[in-house]
């Protein structure tokens, strides 16, 4: 079982991203990803003071286009891929008791 005191607890993070792991996946991912995270720590050694962060390689700001109405998908097209639909809407699982 994963160490609950470890920095990285795969079960906890899986909950955050709405994944449910099998017991086997929990053990395997805990070990594999702990190894990857250990490797990622190599960036800890770099002196990064005063270095700005790059979010995009090619910074783009305030990109506008003409505000012209164009055709959108039809209701039928929008709903075609829905696993469940009802009354021309996406059907979701019950959210209120």
């Amino acid at each position: 079982m994963p160490d609950p005191d470890a920095d990285f607890n795969v079960g906890y993070v899986a909950q955050l991203c709405r994944l449910e792991l099998t017991a086997e996946e929990t053990v395997q991912f805990q070990e594999q990803l702990s190894g990857v995270i250990e490797y990622m720590k190599k960036i800890d050694q770099l002196d990064l003071s005063g270095i700005e962060a790059t979010a995009h390689a090619v910074p783009a700001f305030d990109v506008y286009r003409e505000d012209e109405p164009t055709a959108s998908l039809s209701l039928e097209e929008v709903l075609r891929n829905a696993p469940q639909k009802s009354q021309n809407q996406f059907a979701v699982t019950k959210v209120v008791e």
Binding site: F8, V10, V13, A14, L16, C17, R18, L19, E20, L21, E25, F29, Q32, L33, V36, I37
Partner: peptide
């Protein structure tokens, strides 16, 4: 999500969330 995604996608979503 767990039934739809394969192992590597799950690993990367978990890593990215972490």
């Amino acid at each position: 999500r767990s039934e739809g995604f394969g192992a590597e996608v799950k690993r990367r979503i978990i890593l990215g969330t972490y």
